[in-house]
Structures are given as C-alpha cells and as structure tokens.
C-alpha cells in the first residue's frame, strides 16, 4: 500500500499514522499533519488508506 507524503510516494507496512511516524523517524510532538486536506490531531492515531495524501510539517526550534 502506498501513501503520498509531502509529494513523495511512500510504501507502508503498517496502515496507521503512528507507524508512519516511526518509519520516517518523526517525533509526533513537533509536527502538524494534514491528511487529504484535513488537519489530523497528531496525538490521535488514524488509519491510512492506499493513495492518502499527507502533508507533514516538521517544526524546529528557534525564535
């Protein structure tokens, strides 16, 4: 199953958001996630389907 993450195709083994975070070594505390145009609260895990389009915005500190 494939999803699109920040415009790149990504093969999934487990079909949920938190596994994707693990795959991509993403700390859920510092990202904002949009799935198919809707914001997904990153604390809530959610199911992913083939062809889902995700935008994962990662924040770094400094200001």
């Amino acid at each position: 199953m494939k999803v699109i993450v920040n415009e790149k195709e990504h093969q999934l083994t487990e079909k949920d958001l938190h596994s994707l975070f693990k795959d991509l070594k993403i700390n859920p505390e510092v990202v904002v996630v949009e799935k198919n145009g809707e914001i997904i609260p990153r604390k809530n895990n959610c199911e992913l389907k083939d062809g889902d389009r995700l935008e994962i915005i990662k924040f770094v500190g400094g200001g």
Binding site: E29, V30, V32, I39, R42, I57, F59, G61
Partner: peptide, 9 residues
C-alpha cells in the same frame, strides 16, 4: 518546536 506545532495545529 513543540509549542510551535501545537499552536499551528
């Protein structure tokens, strides 16, 4: 970083 993400979300 965490504060930024939380507020933007």
């Amino acid at each position: 970083a965490g504060d930024k993400a939380r507020l933007v979300e």
